[in-house]
Design a binder for these strands. Structure first.
Length: 819
DNA sequence: GCAAGGTC
């Protein structure tokens, strides 16, 4: 007789084999995967671990093209179950063929029952031997032996409850995600996926609810009356019992009455001793919360580190709901181990002097013990074994938490003083740590004393200062990741193993982000949640998960047929889906708006500013017919500005238009353009905006000549764009000087040519006697040009600019247009 | 390409 058993994972299979096989176990390979062979009660046993789920659901092929399937249709399509781990499926069949009896020995929970049924389904393809179920709550010899001596029937209902969850989760996720994503893409160009899911969406909902309160918050003034008292032992602060006074007059009235008071009376003094118990043992959720709160490590990373610590033998299995130790847990051997480790020695020794009594919680998931260290290790040992920088501190947290859990309560002494100042009551309090107890081993908790000098009841104390301070109420704080985990846990969102992944999904989608310990809503997430809460509010709240959970619990309890529960669940999804569909426009236009805004903000090259008309974003828009500055809020917002037709545009971030233009743009290398009020050079305030270096007055109009550098050439142009231009030397480094020409008043230039030619200062103005001297000089090569230029009319003189034909045309057109 | 649940 050969008995084959399937456990949830290899680790469990090995443990079961070692318990039942009593050490006489042979490790074998089945299809390349580990399995364990041994004898128990005269029978041949083969135990293999699976890898969690080895099957999954998906829609049939023809439904996988998003563009060809109406997402709502998916709610009515039956997904197919297929093998995701072919290696495990082959191994299951291989072992099943050898079996006379098969035992499902996965974890004792809904998913474990389902995973067992996956193996059962596969095995049934090759055998028709009977199946039985071993149920154990811990991998201890006692529990395991009991389970295998008292085999039960596999629980079909329990497995089908998980099956219903899988199908409903997939239908909802696929239909809703595709609907929202595709609808938004009709209005905004994006490759991003806007996902919706029964866990991720309520998780985002928690962040949204807090954000909404923060955004709606309006600060209010309040006043607080405080006094600094002085006693023999020192000074201390007291607060008027009225606390935060929101009425300014009332505060003033009280303060007026108190003014001039020189002393107060200690009317009553109470001293109370309070005990703070050590924390409960760590289950997964509590561990993740503390890793985030104390170490600033994200739940995702914390779980990963804990997994590595577990695999390396430093700590116990990290996925557990249990926060109480089993009665027979051997604390002493662990503590003795810690007594040999320098960092933890003092705490371990203090624990060993008395009988060990742990502080226990009340959750027992019947799965694994609380997370605890398996062996004492130094930070160095941990960091050399695990290649994650945070591993030593995570280990340290788990180790110290374990030790703290076994230590006595911390004792505080709290003193409260009730004082009277001109009959008005004041309060003052202080706290002193009398016995640090478990806090000694647990530096993560704040244990600062707030000291009060010694005063006696009935004592008169002096008043050093009385103040009436105005403050503002502050908005609620952003959620911390630890608080988010608490909300998820309380509302049954996700499981101990999946909660971090739901947070990650939301981050990946750009719905929210975490900075250190706090979670911040991002605009896409906020708009999506806002849209959903207005159309299908149940989606944003934990209700959606709760409703599905109720349905599948009824399947598990045998109160409802699988098919009936599925139908009900689908009906619920259809109802939500039609609400979403009916409000498609409202939902998608706001999300599309946010996506466009975010894209426009990201597009540094074209971004101009936030639109003052509507709050969306102004940016440069290029179309086939030309370019302009337009608003992402179009067509609702038609705010727009023209731009010059040619020339590369560069937004000058450092320039600010003084005439309330939105931004200053550089056009090619020629001139600037202020968005909203036209080109800068036409602006009266041009000098404040972007002063051109003028050379002197234009001989043709009342403008000024300034140096224009364009592509490979340079020349003088007129600020009034009258059309008059003037050449400058083509080669060499040209510097405009402050000194002016005695002949015409134009500023002079200095030229430093390549090679050893000396620097010289000169006037370039051909209409000036001094200027002509320069151009006539041999080597400037411009004698002929002077004659040619002189023969042309000023209006056509731009043709004389020594540039290519094309550029000169473009330039001329621009100059004309901008006039 | 979509979810959530296992586990490595």
């Amino acid at each position: 007789m050969t008995v084959v058993a399937f456990a949830e994972k290899n680790k469990a299979a090995a443990q079961i084999a070692s318990i039942l096989g009593d050490g006489e176990v042979e490790k074998i390979a089945v299809e390349g995967l580990p399995a364990y062979e041994f004898k128990w009660k005269g029978e041949e046993w083969l135990v293999m671990g699976l890898s969690g789920h080895i099957m999954n659901y998906d829609f049939p092929e023809q439904y996988n093209k998003w563009s060809e399937v109406n997402p709502g249709v998916l709610l009515g399509v039956d997904p197919e179950k297929f093998v995701t781990r072919a290696d495990y499926a082959a191994a299951v069949k291989n072992l099943a063929k050898r079996a006379d009896k098969i035992i499902l020995a996965c974890d004792y929970d809904r998913e474990g029952e389902n995973i067992g049924f996956e193996a059962k389904t596969l095995a049934e393809e090759v055998t028709n031997v009977p199946f039985e179920r071993a149920r154990f709550s811990a991998l201890s010899p006692k529990e395991v032996k009991k389970a295998f001596e008292n085999l039960m029937d596999p629980d079909y209902n329990m497995a089908m409850a998980a099956e219903a969850r899988q199908i409903l989760d997939l239908k909802m996720g696929a239909a809703f995600t595709r609907f929202v994503t595709l609808s938004v893409r009709e209005k905004a160009r994006t490759k991003d996926i806007l996902s919706i899911g029964p866990c991720q969406t309520p998780t985002c909902g928690f962040v949204y609810e807090r954000e909404k309160v923060i955004r709606a918050f309006q600060a209010k003034d309040f006043w607080k009356i405080t006094a600094i008292f002085s006693a023999k032992g020192g000074e201390f602060e007291g607060t008027h019992r009225a606390g935060n006074i929101h009425d300014k007059e009332k505060a003033a009235e009280i303060f007026k009455k108190l003014k001039g008071a020189k002393e107060g009376l200690v009317a009553k003094k109470t001293v109370k001793e309070t005990k703070t118990s050590p924390p409960n043992p760590l289950n997964t959720t509590e561990f993740l919360k503390r890793a985030s709160k104390f170490l600033g490590i994200s739940p995702e990373l914390a779980l990963e580190v804990a997994e590595q610590l577990y695999l390396a033998g430093f700590t116990s299995y990290p996925r557990t709901e249990t926060n109480k130790y089993a009665d027979d847990f051997d604390f002493k051997s662990f503590v003795l181990d810690f007594a040999r480790q320098k960092e933890y020695k003092p705490f371990a020794e203090s624990i060993l002097i008395a009988p060990i009594v742990p502080k226990n919680g009340d959750k027992d998931g019947h799965d694994h013990p609380p997370i605890h260290p398996i062996r004492a290790a130094s930070r160095g040992e941990v960091s050399s074994a695990i290649n994650i920088p945070q591993a030593p501190e995570v280990y340290d947290l788990i180790a110290r938490h374990f030790l703290a859990n076994l230590m006595p309560a911390a004792i505080f002494e709290k003193t409260h003083l009730h004082l009277l100042v001109k009959e008005d009551p004041f309060d003052s309090s202080g706290t002193v740590l009398k016995d640090s107890g478990w806090l000694e081993a647990y530096p993560f908790e704040n244990k600062k004393d707030k000291l009060l000098p010694f005063v006696e009841e009935g004592e008169e104390v002096g008043i050093k200062k009385l103040s009436n301070t105005k403050s503002k109420t502050s908005p609620p704080k952003k959620l911390t990741e630890a608080e988010l985990l608490t909300l998820m846990d309380k509302n049954g969102i996700g499981t101990k193993a999946t909660a971090p992944s739901h947070i990650e999904t939301n981050k990946k989608r750009g719905y929210f982000e975490t900075k250190g310990k706090t979670v911040s809503m991002l605009d896409t997430g906020f708009t999506l949640m806002e849209g959903l809460s207005l159309t299908v509010p149940i989606l944003v709240r934990p209700d959606i998960r709760a409703k599905i959970e109720t349905l599948i619990q009824e399947v598990e309890d045998g109160k409802k047929e699988f098919e009936a529960a599925l139908d009900e669940g689908i009906a619920l999804l259809r109802e939500m889906y039609s609400q979403l569909e009916a409000n498609k426009k409202e939902l998608t236009s706001s999300i599309a708006g946010t996506i466009k805004d975010e894209a426009a903000l990201e597009d540094k090259k074209n971004y101009i500013e936030t639109c003052k008309a509507c709050g969306h974003v102004l940016r440069i828009v290029q179309t086939d017919s030309g370019r302009f500055v337009g608003c992402t809020g179009y067509p609702d917002c038609r705010n727009s500005y023209p731009l010059p037709k040619t020339g590369a545009l560069t937004v000058l971030r450092s320039k600010e238009c003084k005439k309330e233009g939105a931004a200053v743009l550089k056009v090619g290398n020629k001139y600037n353009w202020a968005v909203g009020i036209g080109p800068c050079f036409k602006c009266d305030l041009e000098k404040e905006c972007y002063p051109p270096e003028t050379v002197g007055p234009c001989p043709e109009c009342d403008g000024s000549m300034f140096l224009i550098t364009f592509k490979d050439t340079r020349f003088l142009g007129c600020t009034k764009r009258c059309g008059y231009t003037h050449s400058v030397p083509k080669a060499g480094k040209l510097t405009l000087l402050d000194k002016t020409c005695e002949g015409c008043g134009w500023r002079m230039f200095r030229l430093k040519e390549e090679g050893e030619s000396p620097e010289e200062d000169f006037c370039v103005n051909r209409r000036c006697k001094e200027g002509r001297k320069y151009w006539k000089k041999p080597g400037t090569g411009n004698e002929a040009r002077i004659r040619k230029t002189a023969s042309l009319s000023p209006a056509a003189s731009s043709a004389a600019i020594p540039v290519t034909g094309r550029t000169s045309k473009v330039l001329a057109a621009d100059l004309k247009k901008n006039k």
